[in-house]
Design a protein around this nucleic acid. Structure first.
Lengths: 215, 215
DNA sequence: ATATTTTTGGACATTCTTGTCTAAATTGTC
DNA sequence: GACAATTTAGACAAGAATGTCCAAAAATAT
């Protein structure tokens, strides 16, 4: 967690380290308290940094907020697409492989702290900063539906499932894998591994009952 | 919308009328701004009432907030169970009837302003007031899953569908009817009638593909 | 019409927060 | 070890919001 990376340009080491610390702490506090309720003194304390340093780095509460959302958005998008790349294109056991994929999706993108943060802030502040979040929306969810839809289309082409509208099927798949978790997620709680797996299993079973190849 | 009801006890008319006005205005403002960001002057102005009157009625910003959540929770629960009572127990055309039911659910419970309010505040403030929202959770969602599950079980008993775990199936149904709307709902936007219907239709079609009786 | 209750508008003290400034201390570099 | 940059702690001004108090005005009931 220190640095250890190539010193491309002579970055003041602890400078950028503190920058990250601040972003992380700010993310936690914004997530807990919302934009209006977040207190810069608290952010500074939680980052282990003086208040002035926060202002030195980010200038402004609003700028800090935007930086935090940007950062988390990017990280979440990366996680989504990385997980997407593990889709079982040539499944051994379609049901089991889809369950594992769904579990990964839940764990790495939906139920982790970044996912929770984004969901919460999206709902709380997307009215106030429409461009900020709709940007994420176009690059994240909109693309993931298309990408996941394409994967399902390929499965259909391989004769493993039968579907008509891949994008819609992708949305249904995503909705289903959270069906059992919705209330927990909405209350900002972290579902257990076991709950995540159970939810994924139930989802895939129904999914294949609807779209699986019939004998 | 005035009074018109039997004057059981000699209620000062505009007294309780103003009480309602304040609750409604506070709901709007809390929903827009969150608890911390909500401004009592603004609530008073939006209710068409002086600030002092707000304090006379509810004493405290926190008490006001609790009263608002209680009020909206009760109304939403009532709407849910009323809609639930229109479930097609003896369907004429199962698919069409389920679609209509899903549309009603979306319109009266999920996509309306109370639904939006509750979703937003649940996510924003359920950490700070756990008892307040978990109370609603036990009386609302938990019961609706059971109740809707029982309806599906009856359909299964009548030989119209084939299911194993009614409660889980109920959760899947509810998740599916919002699959296409999730992003809009999460951003606090109001999906159009057409979008709501489309989403319901897609959901029911998949639902019956999975659980409908096969010839 | 009168008496009672509620509402109003505004002044007010208090607290909290943001954002700036400055001098001292710490850190890292040469 | 000396020098430069960053960080720190604390003071500070300005503004905003909560909640209280009060006297005048309005509405309600008798």
């Amino acid at each position: 967690m220190t640095t250890g990376i190539a010193p491309d340009i002579a970055l003041p080491r602890s400078h950028s380290a503190k920058r990250l610390c601040i972003i992380e702490a700010a993310a936690r506090v914004f997530c807990r308290e919302g934009f209006a309720g977040a207190n810069i003194d608290l952010i500074a304390a939680e980052a282990g940094v003086s208040r002035q340093t926060v202002y030195n780095h980010h200038g402004d509460k609003e700028k800090l907020f935007v930086a935090v959302v940007q950062d988390i958005s990017d990280r979440t998008n990366a996680a989504i697409f990385e997980t997407l790349s593990t889709f079982p294109d040539r499944p051994d056991d379609l049901e089991a492989d889809l369950v594992e994929f769904a579990v990964r999706l839940n764990r790495n993108c939906v139920c982790n702290s970044e996912g929770r943060f984004l969901r919460k802030l999206l709902q709380a502040e997307s009215d106030r900063y429409p461009e900020l979040f709709s940007g994420w929306c176009d690059q994240g969810p909109a693309k993931i539906w298309a990408a996941l839809g394409a994967r399902f289309a390929r499965l259909a082409h391989a004769g493993l499932i039968e579907i008509d509208e891949p994008d819609m099927v992708a949305r249904q798949f995503l909705a289903l894998i959270n069906a059992d978790l919705q209330m927990l997620l909405q209350m900002g709680r972290q579902p257990s591994e076991e709950q995540q797996r159970q939810s994924a299993q139930n989802a895939v079973r129904m999914f294949l009952r609807a779209y699986g190849k019939r004998p």
